[in-house]
């Protein structure tokens, strides 16, 4: 019956194969930026780069441990099963202090290493003191089931008369730190930009600063990552990253112009797509 061990080996080999294949395929790896041809292995945001490196380290550690334990398991089941009447009889013994100390200390050391190693990343992504000292991009208020986004108008200050109100439409500029204030007007939501590896819960009663950047212009996705009610699946937003500040300003101007519209559109377009 030693061939059973080959079945186990097969499962392990498939797992390792997937593990090895994942980085090659953009579909299987972590979410990439809008321009996939520019390479998908490196995240497009500076927080993402740090977070991904942690991810890769953990993946390597668990990968090595996985391969090691699988080799040992398959080896033991293949060679020591079915030794027949001539083989040495298996013996039972209770406890081995040396073995137990080793298998406690090694994982503990790995855990302590990971815990210490990630602290810098956590601090730079989440600590309020690490928030960039820039003008806020917007105030984002989550509500069932949409993102209400309020940009400071030309005066750069929020909560003033020239604020721009948008729904589900987040704009910022490539290569610049964007700082938003995240709020919720009803229940828990979670502001999630998968490609930028930014995820932050929106908590009723709290105003939470969130900051992010990217080195790739284009369209991204904003989703809600906290089950917030029956319409959770609808809670998505469009994120547009502009190539230059001028492009962003242009967009802001046109949006403000639309918001202050006092006339019926010159021509109501009859484009019904038929």
């Amino acid at each position: 019956m030693r061939y059973w061990s080959l079945l186990f080996a097969l499962a392990a080999i498939i797992s390792v194969g997937i593990f090895a294949y994942a980085p090659i395929s953009p579909e299987w790896w972590l979410p990439a930026g809008p321009n996939v041809s520019a390479g998908h292995l490196h995240s497009v945001s500076s927080a993402g780069k740090q977070i991904d490196s942690l991810f890769v380290i953990i993946l390597l550690i668990t990968g090595i441990v996985f391969i090691g334990t699988q080799v040992a398991l398959v080896y033991a089941t293949y060679f020591f099963v079915d030794k027949g009447p001539n083989g040495r009889k298996a013996s039972y013994f209770h406890g081995s202090q040396r073995l137990e100390v080793i298998w406690t200390i090694i994982p503990a050391a790995i855990l302590v290493f990971i815990a210490l190693y990630q602290m810098g990343t956590w601090a730079s992504v989440k600590f309020r003191s690490a928030a960039p000292k820039v003008q806020p991009l917007a105030q984002v208020t989550a509500r069932q089931f949409q993102w209400v986004i309020r940009y400071p108008g030309e005066d750069g200050k929020l909560e003033t008369k020239d604020d721009l109100f948008m729904v589900n439409d987040l704009h910022f500029v490539k290569g610049k730190q964007a700082l938003i204030y995240l709020k919720s007007s009803d229940v828990l939501h979670s502001f999630f930009l998968p490609a930028l590896r930014i995820k932050q819960d929106a908590v009723p009663g709290l105003t939470i600063p969130v900051w992010f950047d990217t080195d790739q212009a284009g369209h991204y996705e904003l989703v809600c990552a906290e089950l917030c009610g029956w319409g959770h699946y609808k809670m998505r937003g469009n994120v547009t990253v502009h190539e230059t500040q001028e492009e962003f300003d242009q967009w802001l101007q046109s949006a403000l112009k639309e918001q202050s519209r006092d006339q019926v559109a010159a021509v109501v377009t009859g484009s019904q797509g038929r």
Binding site: V167, N168, L222
Partner: peptide, 26 residues
């Protein structure tokens, strides 16, 4: 497209394309 703020009608701009919204209007 923009929903009705202050009600439960959400904005569908990010969920449907322009031609899809026209189909829903129909």
């Amino acid at each position: 497209t923009h929903g009705l703020h202050g009600t439960s009608m959400p904005a569908f701009e990010a969920l449907m394309s322009g031609s899809e919204i026209e189909q829903v209007i129909d």
